[in-house]
Design a protein around this nucleic acid. Structure first.
Lengths: 202, 202
DNA sequence: TCGTAAACGGAACAATCGTTCTGTTATTAT
DNA sequence: ATAATAACAGAACGATTGTTCCGTTTACGA
């Protein structure tokens, strides 16, 4: 069997390159889905906001659902990277969580958290998203757990706590903050609640 | 100017009565919006699920947004009534919150909380919903506060706490539980977190 | 320079969106 | 019985949905 490679003289040819940066466009898509949610964001919205052609959108990202999944994938990577760096640059556990939560309440444009928004919008109507969000929960709780453990070994936690339970608790608090911050932008009240929650650590 | 009333003999006439119970249908609409969210629920979905005609839907409830608002209004009334009764039938504060939260984690069909779902879906894209949800937050925090106060006066809280901060904290916890319950139905882990949070009360 | 193939712009697709309209049916005071 | 009128069933509306297709443009290896 002969291969096509041999039969055609100019088989390999390079087409024109993309006129847009794929990751840059994906970041834009992420931000629009984040703000509007999956269902409320139309392809036309995306075409307008991303500034690329419909055909380019479909050629590059597949369909709407695929683009959404890729957007959320990017968000997950970014937020996990951010948390890791955040913990590394905050050696004290209690201070670290305090700063993390207090940063979360500065939600000027009320977008909340893309993961939390997806949880409430897409569960229980999208099975595949449940898997992703379950994984996301585990990732966060594990990060929280390791951070707590490091703090415990450094003697930052007074008593011997159930770190697993503490990690779950902190994840719940984090989710709660990310919901309530969309309603309430009064920093003072939320700060008090955070201090109250973190009094369980020391 | 003569009035039409005088020119026609039988001006007042009663039409046929509704073949469906308005509140019953509204409850159904509430449940569908609750499960699917506002954007993901089409009029056709509603017509199928409610079992009434399109025209009847529009005649009775106005348009989609009005039906949604009425659905959520019904939900708010029901949940506030439920909380009031719940607190009245649970004289001990800590036990009351414990039971309330532990009831929330039994979310078999993963619908979550209609109010939380609406918060993440509709803010910041619907200004009128922000007002409603702000009011809802205040209502809940006030209910929590009064309940805490009653418990404090009954000597159920050891120290003299900042009850306002405690109420806000419990509202955040409640929201967090109502999000995470959609992902995690493992009761044990969530129960531990609830116990941890409520250790701040006694 | 030339041919290839992907990116591009934009029209076009069927399906569905929320909403309105048109008759018909059914009820009740007269 | 009759007239009036709202509820009913269902077709129809234009607009928008997500997606595909077509023809052109453009970059790059040969």
């Amino acid at each position: 069997m002969w291969r096509r490679k041999n039969t055609l003289p100019h088989f390999f040819a390079m087409p024109r390159v993309k006129l847009f940066d794929e990751k840059e466009v994906l970041t834009k898509a992420m931000n629009l889905f984040w703000k509007q949610g999956y269902s409320a964001t139309s392809i036309q919205d995306l075409v307008n906001y991303l500034g690329i052609n419909r055909a380019s959108l479909y050629d590059t990202f597949g369909d709407k659902e695929k683009l959404f999944k890729k957007s959320f994938e990017l968000y997950r990577k970014q937020s996990i990277d951010k948390i890791c760096q955040f913990f590394e640059s905050h050696p004290n556990v209690k201070e670290g969580f305090s700063e993390l939560f207090k940063e979360a309440i500065l939600d000027k444009d009320r977008k909340g958290c893309f993961a939390v928004n997806n949880t409430t919008e897409l569960i229980p109507n999208d099975e595949s998203c449940l898997k992703i969000l379950s994984g996301n929960k585990l990732d966060f709780e594990n990060l929280f757990y390791e951070y707590l453990k490091k703090g415990q070994m450094a003697g930052q936690l007074k008593e011997c706590k159930d770190l697993q339970a503490l990690a779950s608790f902190l994840f719940i608090i984090y989710n709660g903050i990310l919901v309530v911050s969309k309603i309430q932008t009064n920093k003072k009240e939320l700060t008090n609640s955070i201090d109250l929650a973190l009094s369980l650590l020391a």
